[in-house]
Structure formats: C-alpha cells, structure tokens
Amino acid sequence: MDDTIKLSVINMTKLYSNGDGVKNVDLDVHTGELVTLLGPSGCGKTTILRTIGGFIDLTDGDITIDGKSIITLPPEKRPTSMVFQSYNLWPHMTVHDNLEFGLKLRKIPKDIREQKIAEGLSLVKMNGFEKKYPGQMSGGQQQRIAIARSLILEPEVLLLDEPFSALDAKIRMEMREELRKIQTDLNITVIFVTHDQEEAMMLSDRIVVMSKGHIEQQGTPRQIYDNPVSRFVAGFIGEMNFLDDGTGKQIAVRPEHISVTKGEGGILSGTVRTVMMLGHYLEMTLDTDKGLVKVYINSDQADEFEKGDKVALNFDHTYSYNKE
C-alpha cells in the first residue's frame, strides 16, 4: 500500500426510481489498499461497487481511476474486474476456458495465455482443475476460480461483491485469509463489499461503514472499533451494550470494558442470568435495572459466577450517543 490514490469516487449520487440509492458519496482508495464497504442490506454498498464496475449509471458525480474519469466507459472497457456473490463462472465452459475468455479478448498470444492461466490457478491453489466444469466443483472452489479469473486480467481495481457469503463458515475463513495474503503479495487495490462486520474487521486496511445511502464513518478497523462516531456504527461493529441514562442520551459500553465483581455496589448492580463458555473467555448475561447487559470475563474466573448471583458492575470505558 502506498500514498498514491488509485480510485476516487467524487460526490457520487445514484437515485433509483423508488427513491432509494446513495447520495453525495466521496471515497478515495489508495494503491494496494483493501477497502471494505460495510453495512446492512439496502445501505447502498453494492450500488457503489456496481457503479464502479460499470453496471449501473450514476445520477451525478464522477469516478476516476489514476485520475481519469471512467464513468462514460462500458464495463468491458473499464480497468476493473468484479467477482460476484454467486453464478460467476460460465457453466458451459471448463475452468481453463473460463480463465482464457478474458485473455483471448485482450488478444494475448496462446503461450502467454497458458502461462497466465497456470499462474492464476496456482495463486488460488487450484492446479489440476483446468478440465473441470463449474458444476463439478464446490461453491468455494468456484469462487477461487472466479477470483483467479479476475486476477489474471490484472485489473487496476478488483471489485468483490460479497464473494464469500454463500460459503460455509470454515471455507469462508480460509478464503478470507487467502484473499488477504494474495492481495498483499501482489499489492492489488481491492474494494470489498460485505454485510459481515467480522469479515470487514479481518480483511480491511480501511472500513467504510454505510447506512441508508451515505457513509457513516470510515477508518481502520481499530479506529472504527475504538471510536464509533454514531449510535449506528457503535451498534453495527462489535458487541455493544446500550443503556439509557435518563436524559435522552444512551451510554454505550463494550462487554470487555465492564468489570464484574461479586456482591453489591458498583455503577450498576445486576443478577447473573446466563454464563456461556466461548473458549478462552466467558460471555455472561446480566439482568440489571437498565436491561440486559452482556459482559466478557476470563475463563479462569469461570467458577466464580453462577446463575442467580448478585454482581456489581464497573465501566472502564463508555461512549455516549443521542438516542435514535
């Protein structure tokens, strides 16, 4: 990753006939950076991605790659490549032909094509699958091929539209790790769309949190986790307890920022409702007069607390938001 700006979305607006869409979005993506557009469904993240890819016309604004506007170009002329959530591969072509399609269109000679296909396959660890048809592979394997197909075209910006969300949890984890590795190794610029905050935290150099067609906050995963600027971001990223403070504001506190001791006292008192073992830590749900509160405690404290115990809560760090 370096400081040069690869892609700029400048004051972009896209409105659909039903009034949905995105408004006045500004976004810069640096060369070699992996930026995640994160938000609930309908927040406009896919709209932005598809506009960059050329599949949606924008209502207003501009998109530039290396300083040149791309908005008048059709998808096939744009220096971007997109991986979709599913149905990426052409079912009537073998893996080899799927990979070769774009290279042929670029009039790359046969021997170089074959070399690139081999490289692409080894990048996603799919050597030996050349003769398979998409229908003969698992969903995860198909997505690997789809990523390889995009990578060998050497796009200026790689666009990924929830590429792993149709895969099961274990494969999804593996794919994230591999994608991150390939991305840093090749220093490619990636825009990744997801609704999964955990995925965004794992992968991103920078997260752009979106809600209802606008950007709520952008920053590194750390910045966003530590300093959520709005009630929406605070609720969307990580676990957060929201407590009414009686003045129309809400106190927000993360489970790991609550210390619990047995007995009375503290800022808030409560009763243990459930204790759940989650590996090296425990998740405890407490009944308080401000509602249910979730806390994390170390597993060596596991024996200290039982259902029904009276406990005292103290907060190490809190946030304050206007009630929504």
Binding site: G53, G54, F55, P74, P75, E76, T80, S81, M82, F84, Q85, S86, Y87, N88, L89, W90, P91, F101, G102, L105, R106, A146, R149, S150, L153
Partner: peptide
Amino acid sequence: VPKHQEEAARDAGAG
C-alpha cells in the same frame, strides 16, 4: 440465465 454470468462476461472484456 443468471444475469451475473452475462455481467461477468462484460466485465472480462466482452461487448
């Protein structure tokens, strides 16, 4: 025919 398959072809450089 899934639309994504057509879009993927456009994306790969086909008119």
